[in-house]
C-alpha cells in the first residue's frame, strides 16, 4: 500500500520531515500500526513517535484513532495536540 504521510508543528521539526510518500508492508493496515512502523526506524522517529508521546492523527483530513484502517492513496497526518484559538 502506498500513501502520503504529513507531519506538523513540533513533530515536523523533531523529524526534520513535513511530507513523505511511503510504501507499506502488508502487515501495516491501521493508523496505529503505521505509527509503530515509522517509530521502528529508530533515532528521532522512535523518540518522537514513542507510545507515551501525545501524538494525534488524521486520515484524509479528518481526526482518526489508531484503530482506523488505511487505504491505498490515503493522506495521513501525524501531529501534536492542537493549540489554536
Amino acid at each position: 500500500m502506498r500513501l502520503t504521510v504529513l507531519f506538523f508543528a513540533s513533530l515536523r521539526e523533531a523529524l526534520g520531515c513535513d511530507r513523505e510518500v511511503v510504501v507499506l508492508p502488508e502487515t501495516v493496515t491501521t493508523l496505529g500500526e503505521l505509527r509503530q512502523w515509522l517509530a521502528s526506524r529508530g533515532g528521532v522517529w522512535a523518540e518522537a513517535l514513542a507510545p507515551g508521546r501525545a501524538v494525534r492523527a488524521a486520515l484524509d483530513q479528518a481526526m482518526a484513532g489508531p484503530e482506523v484502517a488505511l487505504h491505498e492513496g490515503a493522506e495521513v497526518a501525524f501531529f501534536p495536540p492542537v493549540t489554536g484559538g
Binding site: 506538523f8 488524521a58 481526526m63 501531529f79 495536540p81 492542537v82 493549540t83 489554536g84 484559538g85
Partner: peptide, 14 residues
C-alpha cells in the same frame, strides 16, 4: 464553536 475549535481544528502555536 470556540470550545471545539480549541480541540478539533488543526492549528499549532509557537
Amino acid at each position: 464553536v470556540i470550545d471545539w475549535l480549541k480541540t478539533d481544528a488543526p492549528f499549532w502555536k509557537k
